[in-house]
């Protein structure tokens, strides 16, 4: 996208430069050519291609039913992140997920609007009071990923960060149990 945009930008700048440096160059270009090629055909083709690509990609990222995904709940409140796991255990400030498999985060709205975002794992989704939104993430390898609240939520907005900790899929349940029982550091 960046390359395409740069090319378009350079193209427009070049036309502008020609207009200023070589006055009258376009005096014999019929106006309809500007409309049809510049105004309709060129953006039409570029944008259609982009739109089809975008919609296809978006479709692929959706949490389609049927795929097996590990599901956790996120309950952000002013100004901390609370996560709830299938067994009912909770952690605050750190989200534990298995690596190498899709994870559905059900983001549940509580007080004001927050937004769940782990930049390196995927897009963001808002936590809207009264609603539950689901986002599907996959951490390819174990590790620690930074997460933020990306919707402005008041005085503590800046500090409302969390860590997504991806564990090896095999030992995940055990690691999670250890963390939740307080045996391992959170």
């Amino acid at each position: 996208m960046l390359a395409g945009s740069s090319a378009i930008f350079l193209f427009v700048s070049a036309l502008l430069a020609l207009a200023l440096l070589k006055p009258g160059l376009g005096a014999n270009v019929p106006p309809k050519r500007w409309l049809v090629w510049g105004g309709l055909a060129f953006p039409g083709v570029v944008l259609s291609a982009l739109l089809v690509f975008a919609l296809a990609t978006g479709e692929r990222l959706l949490p389609h039913p049927g795929t097996q995904a590990y599901t956790v709940e996120a309950l952000p409140e002013q100004w901390l992140w609370r996560f709830r796991y299938p067994g009912g255990g909770e952690s605050v400030g750190t989200l534990h997920i298995p690596a190498g498999q899709p994870v559905d985060v059900r983001v549940i709205g509580t007080d004001v609007i927050h937004s769940f975002w782990v930049p390196r794992l995927g897009g963001k989704i808002d936590a809207i009071p009264g609603h539950v939104n689901t986002i599907r993430l996959t951490a390819d390898r174990p590790g620690s990923y930074g997460g933020v609240c990306s919707e402005f939520c008041g005085t503590g907005h800046t500090g409302m960060i969390f860590t997504a900790l991806a564990h090896e899929a095999e030992g995940f349940e055990a690691a999670l149990a250890a963390v939740l029982s307080g045996e391992a550091p959170r």
């Binding site: 259609s48 919609l55 479709e59 959706l62 949490p63 389609h64």
Partner: peptide, 14 residues
Amino acid sequence: LVNYAPILGLSACL
């Protein structure tokens, strides 16, 4: 034509 063409393909309620 273009604006609503996605109703032919995309999943509706996800």
